[in-house]
């Protein structure tokens, strides 16, 4: 009974000491979302080396991963993040709006809408593509079962929804047709998992559904993890440019005296080394030299941005995903 108690006490003590050790030099906390785990595991040591060469300072980088919205709420509630790297701008908007920890125009602080790397929305299907899914139109065919998480609880799923909507709107030229398309699509969705990981489990482990709508980087990760002999990635003709943005949480960084290093941490993501690491971890790089090098890894497709079709995240969230928004209406009408 007592032994585990003492050992857990030792863990606490050693944690305390290790954090003291961290304070000896500069320490930085990057609050990120789930699928960037591998990316920052690779990027952080690279940046530490870069920073040491440049300034001689030894950095200690800490990572926190979780659902994007949950992470943003933690920062709002006081998690001391110097840097946030989340799944969608709306979550960083919320930090700016609710807690005022960074200026409202944060997205103009770094190049390319403050998104050093991008992704897009693709389909993961079972090997051999038994239902012959080639493009978005195949998802609304009767008898096709589509797996996507709930856009109300999952930030990633909001990109999925907007990708489908955007595809239909650009194809038909009308928002009404797009709405019809999306409601048909969600009629083919048998389960709404609360997060992207849950949806992947449903599709991969439980064998439910013919197609999983997923971020390209996560589809690559799933392929790497579960085997190319079981699944394949289908890239549609047109999809959304998913921009997971990054920002310095200025107020926190100022208080920690880490403003300069936080700034550098993000800027280095745009460097050739940063971009290469992003590309190696299945995110599409922005820098053209790096993009050219990885060109055969990422299939070409027509990409539209959220600003092109939905004004911005605040507007998209309000019209589509807030309570009584379009998504709710689609569900309330299909239930009757």
């Amino acid at each position: 009974m007592f032994k585990p108690f003492f050992s857990s006490r030792w863990i606490v003590l050693s944690c305390l000491f290790s954090s003291f050790a961290a304070y000896a030099d500069v320490s930085l906390l990057n609050v990120s979302y789930d699928p960037t785990r591998e990316l920052y595991q690779a990027y952080n040591p690279a940046f530490i080396a870069h920073w040491q060469k440049k300034t001689g300072e030894t950095l200690k980088l800490q990572q926190s991963h979780g659902g994007s919205g949950k992470q943003a709420r933690s920062v709002i509630d006081g998690l001391q993040a110097d840097v946030v790297t989340l799944a969608l701008a709306y979550d960083i908007d919320a930090i700016a709006d609710k807690a005022g920890l960074l200026p409202k125009d944060w997205q103009s602080r770094f190049p390319y809408n403050s998104t050093p790397y991008t992704s897009t929305i693709v389909f993961l299907v079972r090997k051999g593509n038994p239902k012959q899914i080639k493009d978005w139109d195949d998802l609304i065919k009767p008898g096709v079962s589509v797996i996507t998480p709930n856009p109300k609880t999952s930030g990633g799923a909001r990109w999925n929804y907007l990708a489908a909507w955007g595809y239909a709107q650009l194809k038909t030229g009308s928002a009404d047709k797009a709405r019809e398309f999306v409601s048909k699509l969600f009629k083919n969705v048998p389960i709404l998992d609360s997060g992207a990981r849950g949806a992947t489990t449903t599709f991969v482990q439980r064998g439910i559904g013919d197609v999983l709508i997923a971020w390209e980087n996560e589809a690559f990760l799933a392929l790497q993890e579960f085997g190319k002999d079981r699944f394949e990635i289908i890239t549609p003709s047109r999809s959304i440019l998913a921009e997971p943005p990054v920002a310095v949480v200025e107020k926190v960084a100022k208080a920690h005296n880490t403003l300069a290093v936080s700034q550098a941490y993000i800027e280095y993501l745009y460097s050739t080394e940063g971009q290469t690491i992003a590309a190696q971890n299945f995110y599409r790089p922005r820098a053209e030299i790096v993009a050219a090098k990885f060109a055969n890894k990422f299939p070409k497709l027509e990409l539209f941005t959220i600003n092109q079709l939905f004004v911005d995240w605040r507007t998209a969230q309000k019209t589509h995903f807030d309570d009584q928004g379009v998504f709710d209406q689609i569900y309330l009408s299909t239930q009757k």
């Binding site: 709420r73 109300k152 609880t153 389960i191 709404l192 998992d193 609360s194 709710d328 309330l332 239930q335």
Partner: peptide
């Protein structure tokens, strides 16, 4: 949440709706 399927009006539990609201801040 892992076993319910979370379909609106059919298998959504109240705690999930609370999380949904939080997700909208």
């Amino acid at each position: 949440v892992f076993i319910a399927g979370n379909m609106p009006m059919i298998s959504e539990i109240t705690p999930l709706l609370i999380i949904t609201k939080l997700e909208q801040y």
